[in-house]
Computed example of a mutant assay.
Amino acid sequence: MYARVLIIAGSDSGGGAGIQADIKTVTTLGGYAATAITALTAQNTQGILAVLPVDPDFIAQQIRSVLTDIGADCIKIGMLYSATTIQVVADMLEDLAAATPLILDPVMNAKDGTSLLEPKAIKLLKQRLLPRAYLITPNLPEAEVLTGLEINDLKDMEQAAVTLLEQGATSILVKGGHLTGNHLWDLLVTQSYTESFKSQRIISPHTHGTGCTLASAIATGIAQGRTLIDSVRRAQVYVQEAIRTAKGYGTGQGPLNHTHTVNTFEI
């Protein structure tokens, strides 16, 4: 099995999130990563200094070049930035990958608060990509924007997921990391079942790119033929260990240790 994952997302020059985190995640979990870059960012652990959107026609060319040759067993979407990009991506996937499972991470803001999705693009995201996705993975602020609901606890998370189902989503993983407490709760809701995932909160400044990493880890599992629950469970274990073993790069919100699954060796 190839386990090919096409990642459509922005680039993080600091290497902790975005395309860079996605490639590391897919690779270290045994998949093959291909990419279509939607935007370039100048950033480090202190935050984002600048964003340069990629021309939509070139984004389309990247997607076409991958899908018509290498192909994809799963597609993961991260930072899209603009309504124009969403339109192009949706059109390309409709034409070339209508049957390919899509994992949508609705990236809206960076950890430093920088906007990574234009406000006018949110409506189009809900119209064109949310109903198309096999799974969407919003954190609590993103779920609140998508549903218009205030989320303060696990019950609110479930209501938000139900609302997203009513909006056309197939399955939703609402990530509860923004809630307080010693434990983290993530909630997976589909048309046929609900599954909750509990994990120990790790107190660490090195959590940059957790959302990108989790979605890409899930996409890798789906590409490998795993079930959705199994893919989510493995992804969460992978992310937890990546946080726990983070190397401590930078002086701000540092990156995860994506390579913890790789055995070190000497040449």
Rank of each mutant, 00 (worst) to 15 (best):
P205V: 12
S82Y: 15
I172P: 01
G225S: 00
V232A: 05
D153F: 12
A21F: 10
K120L: 15
Q87D: 13
G209A: 04
Q20T: 13
S199H: 01
F197G: 01
Q236L: 11
L96Y: 13
Q191V: 05
G78D: 08
L104A: 04
L165A: 02
I86V: 13
L49H: 09
L29I: 04
N152R: 11
I202H: 03
T114C: 09
I243Q: 00
L93K: 05
T28V: 12
V189P: 08
G250I: 15
F197W: 03
L256I: 12
T25Q: 09
L80S: 02
L187K: 00
L173S: 02
E241M: 11
T100F: 15
I103K: 01
D91F: 14
V174F: 02
P119H: 10
A215C: 11
E266H: 14
M157G: 01
G47N: 07
A42D: 10
I77H: 11
G177W: 12
D69Y: 10
Y81H: 15
Y238R: 03
G14C: 03
L179T: 03
C212Y: 07
T194H: 09
A235I: 11
T163Q: 11
S192N: 12
I151E: 08
A133Q: 04
G254R: 01
T27C: 03
G250R: 10
G16D: 09
Y238P: 01
P138F: 00
D95G: 07
Q236M: 14
A169F: 12
V88M: 01
H208Q: 05
I136G: 00
D112F: 04
V26I: 10
Q236C: 05
L154Y: 15
R64E: 14
I222W: 02
S11K: 15
A143W: 00
T261G: 12
M79Q: 10
Y193I: 06
S115E: 14
T45C: 00
G47K: 03
L116I: 01
N257Q: 13
A217M: 05
D186A: 06
T35E: 01
L29M: 02
P101H: 01
V51R: 07
V232H: 04
Q46M: 15
I136K: 14
D57H: 07
D186S: 08
Q62G: 06
Y238C: 13
T227V: 09
I48M: 05
D73M: 08
I218L: 00
L140C: 08
L184S: 04
L40V: 12
G47W: 00
L135F: 02
A98R: 11
A3P: 06
M157S: 06
M157P: 03
A217L: 02
S204P: 13
A217N: 04
T163V: 13
G10T: 06
I202G: 00
G209M: 10
T210L: 06
L93C: 09
L29H: 11
E195D: 11
K111Y: 14
S216L: 03
L104W: 04
